[in-house]
Amino acid sequence: MAIPKRKVNPKGETVISVSGLTPKAARYSRIFDFLVVAAVVPLFAGAFHLHVMLTVGDWDMYVDWKDRQYWPLVAPISMIMFPAALQAIFWVNFRLPIGATVGATVLLITTWLGRYANWWIWTGFPFTEGVPSQVIAGALLMDMALIVLRNSLFTSIFAGFAFGFVFWPSNYSALAPFYLPVEHQGMVASLADMIGYTFPRSNMPEYLRIIERGTLRTFGSSVSWVSAAFAGFICIFMHQLWWQLGRFASQTTFLKNGDVVKSFMGMKSRRAS
């Protein structure tokens, strides 16, 4: 396994040379890298996808839940959590500005995998009904802010806000065609409404949708931007909270083990305690 020898400064120092690893040690360290990546990808595909499904799943799952009031608000608030924690884990311990992108990327890939293997193959829902949201745009901005600002607090303030704020425009580009108007039974419907209506979910009556209702809106047509700004505001705090949680999760605390258990497990020496 080849280790790229990047000369990163004029003295010819590389990360490996400064780390003091011998070539063979560096090879095993690279194997370790592969193992860690092999753990990170499925672990966060599983944990993050579960988190998203059970906190804002309905908005993310169905095209006819993607409204202007709640979806751009609740989805980024929930979806910033794991990326923020991963950012802390990768940055604080390894100075890798990729944590948020890792989270957002595995989420989008695994979501589409589910859409294909479960939604389409098993229950037969058309892909249009389950187009998910993506947070890669916001996550990339968070990682970029971190590499420039190198400070979690400023990252929270600027990039946490950006994460929430760009959720609406960055997803609208992908979903705009689904908001075309159609006339159905003498009433207006968006294509998204029609998709949800045409391909029925037996256990999802129309009223179950938690979406914008009624007509009176103070800001008129800018409902979505108000939601985006509010989402950005909340995301500032969410980012910092989850950054701290990521740091907490990186701790190496060992609690004291009882002598009986230790000797039971094979620890003979008293010195160990």
């Binding site: 280790i3 790229p4 990047r6 990360v15 490996i16 400064v18 780390s19 003091g20 690893l21 560096a26 360290s29 690279r30 370790f32 890298d33 860690v36 990546v37 311990n93 390894f94 100075r95 890798l96 500005p97 990729i98 992108t101 890792v102 957002a104 990327t105 989008l108 890939i109 993506q134 890669i136 745009a137 996550a139 990339l140 990682d143 960055s170």
Partner: peptide
């Protein structure tokens, strides 16, 4: 979006990662 993310991730993942970076840090 996945392509941009993949490019950024690869930009970092080709480098020595966890143990050496932690030691250097």
């Amino acid at each position: 979006w996945l392509a941009v993310a993949a490019a950024w991730l690869l930009f970092w993942l080709v480098r020595p990662l966890f143990l050496p970076r932690w030691l250097v840090l």
